[in-house]
Design a protein around this nucleic acid. Structure first.
Lengths: 229, 229
DNA sequence: AACGGTATCAAACTGTTGTTTTAATCACAA
DNA sequence: TTGTGATTAAAACAACAGTTTGATACCGTT
């Protein structure tokens, strides 16, 4: 239990964490098979129970390991863009979020694990929520709030946050659908950048639209608009 | 193999389809257990293989049964709102889409099955795609296209469609997250209507923003905007 | 009443999957 | 060298889940 990752000659424990991370991301915790993991790690079946106690313990280790670097990414992201215009902050947020969600390098494994937990929660759900989802959510909420001012109700800000996140997450959770509807999209850096541009522009328009209609329209009875009926 | 559903005293086959639909929606095909299904249907284990050949056969039967009424809902929806303003068509689309996705009545089971297939594809994925996803997508694409005119490239329209769908699907696929971030939201009719209003307004703003920036900004080199740096 | 087909049921079967066991191997200190 | 604890390996175990079996009940027909 000395250093976890060397580089070349990893010990069994480290190889297991690495292989498990990949398979958990690909298939989710439930569908992942321990035998597949140890096969990829080139280790023996008993190793996972010896080192981690159980499959769940291995999953916890994967999360814990990837948490560390993901967490510092997070904090440097938040502090890094404090001084900018809200719209630029949103751009940074979406770009980073999409990168973590869609890029395939092992550096961004945590983002995909979090996405999995959202759609298919496991025992680690609460931990993931408070360690990753909520901080991210609060960051995004602050950005949106600074864009709309103090007047609009909290609910509007919350809905906008979920709209932004929903747009992003769809490209990861529904990859199969995207690959049919948009076969060109190959999740490369270029594609991700273009997608980020789109989602930012779309969301900026959405937020502004809501501020506009929120200030002019009545509150309770839905105002009859031109597009009704 | 006479009539499938009576009403009150359903035969075993019908009870199985009904129970299976509920459990497949709740847990997904992979996680659903045949023993749970037959327990809810108050039937014997062997019944599923006797009537449907296999668990997969049962799943196919569930899809086939719910397809019928879902399909006619679809067509009447499309033909029903042809004559309206695009924005009103979008409103209808989103409202109906959300209703199918979030309402818990068995009438709208298909929507949730489709959502499952998007996130966790099974052998029925291709069928679901061409029978439900693609038609819906084309309908939405036509609406968006009629809003932006002929000038914007197809890619922009496609991105907008995915943005709309992503916003909606998130509330179904990530229910657990929503229940933490927004505990008030209880998926009642009121909530769904309000959510539809939000997503429509947000998306209208998003689409218009994209049309605006698309016509004014240069194409290849990203124009330096006020919010940069 | 006897027959034939359909449906149901309890029980067993089979493959899979997470886990455990037991022995062998290795590293290293006494 | 010897002993000790950590690690690995092969095999077995136990629980689970989908499927199959063989017997039995049901029901309309001859």
């Amino acid at each position: 239990m000395n250093m976890l990752f060397d580089d070349q000659q990893l010990d069994t424990r480290a190889r297991l964490v690495k292989a498990a991370a990949a398979i958990f991301v690909e298939q989710g915790f439930g569908a992942a098979k321990v035998r597949d993991i140890v096969a990829r790690a080139d280790a023996n079946i008993a190793a996972v129970n010896y080192h981690f106690g159980s499959k769940e313990g291995l999953y916890a280790a994967v999360i814990q390991y990837h948490s560390a670097q993901a967490m510092e990414n997070l904090s440097q992201q938040v502090t890094g863009s404090r001084r900018r215009v809200p719209a630029a902050q949103l751009r940074d947020f979406v770009r980073t979020f999409l990168q973590r969600l869609l890029t395939d390098t092992p550096q961004f494994t945590m983002g995909k694990l979090v996405a999995r937990e959202m759609v298919e929660p496991t025992a680690a759900f609460n931990l993931i929520m408070e360690k990753f989802v909520l901080p991210q959510y609060h960051a995004l909420r602050a950005i949106i709030r600074s864009m709309v001012g103090a007047a609009p109700p909290e609910e509007l800000v919350r809905r906008c946050c979920l709209s932004v996140v929903g747009q992003c997450l769809y490209y990861q959770s529904a990859r199969q659908v995207v690959s049919v509807l948009d076969p060109e999209f190959d999740y490369g850096e270029k594609d991700i950048d273009r997608l980020a541009e789109h989602i930012v522009a779309f969301s900026l328009g959405g937020v502004h639209q809501l501020v506009r209609s929120g200030t002019t329209a009545a509150r309770k009875p839905r105002p009859a608009r031109a597009d009704d009926r």
